[in-house]
Amino acid sequence: MAGRAFAFWLTNYRRVWRGTIISGFLSPLFFLVAMGFGLGALVDADAGGLGTPGYVEFIAPGILAAQAMQTAVGESTFPVMGALKWQRQYHAMLAAPLGIADIVLGHVAFVAMRVAITSVAFAIVAVALGAITSWWVVAAVLAAVLTGLAFTTPVFAFAARQDNDSGFNVLFRFIVMPMFLFSGTFFPVEQLPAVLEAVAKVTPLWHGVELCRSLVMGTATPAGSLGHVAYLALWVAGGLWLAFASFRKRLVT
């Protein structure tokens, strides 16, 4: 049954996919080129730089994970609120023989697909530009999708509890944006003051970034990677549990 909900979102997507190319694909590409090559030239030229390999190799997997987060959050905020409040597609699905779990899982699966598409596209370009050189990039893409899911399910739960979109502003500005900037995407979190470093290491994005980065840079250890995966999976599961509860509260009255 969740498959039907997924099919619905897929049909919908066929009409608007062009616009998503810009936000989902071109913007991470711009970031990679500007930061990796432009800014990277400054970082690598300095004695205090990251050493070998260069800065672009450092941030490419970081952007891969961060982009997964941004796509996931973007697809889990306004579309969810729209389906609850404006276009009310969820209500239509509920009137058809779909349950709450089908509705949530179907839509989550669609978001995962969106994350997968943008991650694959970005990975191909990063490889073509020489920013990623390892075959482990395939595993890194899977890790990026998992990172995306770790944001999707909690944000679904959050979105289903909002009455209007002002909460999203807070989410973007005070959660997503700081995570993007401080969770190890652009520089190692060890640069942060000890307290902030500890905070950064609790965020799912840091685990996603570390997982992707260690995979493509060949520094991954089985125990470390499993730890990251388990932590992210915990977010997915916890978020899903909350999302079921929130959706039930909102849709079944």
Binding site: L39, L42, V43, D46, G48, G49, L50, N169, V170, R173, F174, M177, P178, L181, F182, F186, F187, Q191, L192
Partner: peptide
């Protein structure tokens, strides 16, 4: 909330990354 975005960028890139540059 609009106040914070440039400030976050300043501290992330300017201070965090700046130490490497």
């Amino acid at each position: 909330s609009g106040v914070f975005e440039p400030v976050f960028y300043l501290f992330s890139l300017g201070v965090g990354l700046g130490a490497l540059i």
